[in-house]
Amino acid sequence: MNNLKNTFLPILLFLFVFSANLSAQEDASEVEKTEETTKSKKKLFSFLKKKENNSKSEKSQEDKKSKSKKNKYKLPDIDLSHWKVTLPVTNEKGKPYEIEPPEILDFASNEVAKPYMYIDSTAGAIVFHAMPTASKTRNTKYTRSELREQMKPGSNSVNWTFKDGAYMRGKIQMDETTRDSKGKYHRTIIMQIHGRLTNEQRDLIGEDDNNAPPILKIYWDKGKIRVKTKVLKNLNASNEEILHESAWGDDAGFNFEEEVGFKKFVLEVKVSKGKMVVVLNGKEHKVYDNIHMKRWGVFENYFKAGNYFQTRDEGAFSKVKFYELEVKH
């Protein structure tokens, strides 16, 4: 019996120790598994959190970009309720296509106007696009995409005199223009003051229309701003004689010193009795205060602004941007 105990006792002791070790190993394994699970959960949580943050960051960036894009869309500061436009295409009668108020207020939706007068919403400007076509206004060989002032919307009959006074201001930019065969940029007229005969004056001199000469033409000329006006050929001409277009000639012209090139610039035109002043960028002034201005007081006038392209070269074109345009009387 003692021998049997001596035989099994070491075995039982071994089994007990082995079982305890096994249990301890299992417990340790469970602890390790728990720790691994915890680590995995932490890693997954960290990954998901990072992904969420990245997603939020990307969304925030997208929102910023979207907001930035929205903020970039601008409209020009131009009220067209007292302007009509002449475009370089013809209507069904073969005359230059025109849009008057109130239709001009919806010019952006006009299919005929779209290629020649449209909004650049990233710049916040109206673009006037002109090129040589068959569409020519009376007494000229050139085409235009140009606004004509109408003090009474839809009518050309109500205009102003120098005695009444007038003011026009525009923020402008030459966007694109072609070059001639000598490599020089084509020029265009961007602002005008045009004379007009009253019906009585027209009938007095036997004309068949109310057209009178333009007292002011402002050109974008090879990157510079050039001004031309009219001078009376005979200072002793009567008030009736000066109503004839042939009584007036062109002056020598004037170039402002600053070269505007393809940058934005501001032009102002100020008219009062017997006087006209043209201002570039608030710095340079050209003053016309002479007998010619005083005699011009016999005419009615209206403002014009846009792109009156001065070439018939094949394939030529220009695009002029107007950011702001205002008129006061």
Rank of each mutant, 00 (worst) to 15 (best):
316 A>V: 11
282 G>T: 07
78 I>L: 07
310 Q>I: 05
8 F>W: 15
84 K>E: 12
35 E>M: 05
172 I>Q: 03
18 F>K: 03
326 E>I: 06
180 D>I: 06
241 E>R: 02
62 E>N: 11
118 Y>V: 04
110 N>D: 14
297 G>N: 15
115 P>Q: 08
22 L>W: 15
104 I>W: 11
159 N>M: 10
271 V>N: 04
263 K>P: 04
32 E>M: 01
210 N>K: 12
306 G>I: 01
13 L>W: 05
267 L>W: 05
189 I>Y: 09
301 N>H: 14
173 Q>D: 03
39 K>G: 01
191 M>K: 12
83 W>M: 02
251 D>A: 04
298 V>G: 01
50 K>L: 00
208 D>W: 00
20 A>M: 15
51 K>T: 03
152 K>T: 14
76 P>C: 02
134 A>S: 13
283 K>P: 03
194 H>C: 04
152 K>F: 03
217 K>I: 02
254 F>K: 03
295 R>G: 02
178 T>P: 10
7 T>N: 03
86 T>S: 08
207 E>L: 09
252 A>F: 01
236 N>P: 00
69 K>F: 15
217 K>W: 05
269 V>I: 13
307 N>Q: 12
74 K>R: 04
106 D>G: 01
291 I>P: 00
204 L>V: 06
228 K>Q: 12
181 S>L: 10
134 A>R: 09
192 Q>I: 01
97 Y>W: 06
262 F>Y: 13
201 Q>D: 14
120 D>S: 15
141 K>H: 11
146 E>K: 12
232 L>S: 04
58 E>Y: 00
292 H>P: 07
223 G>T: 08
62 E>R: 15
67 K>W: 07
303 F>V: 09
315 G>Y: 05
199 N>R: 08
328 K>A: 14
132 P>Q: 08
310 Q>A: 09
166 A>V: 09
38 T>G: 11
29 S>R: 11
318 S>V: 02
313 D>L: 09
169 R>F: 07
182 K>D: 14
255 N>S: 08
263 K>A: 15
306 G>P: 10
272 S>F: 00
204 L>D: 05
158 V>W: 07
141 K>L: 00
88 P>Y: 02
131 M>H: 14
203 D>A: 15
16 F>T: 14
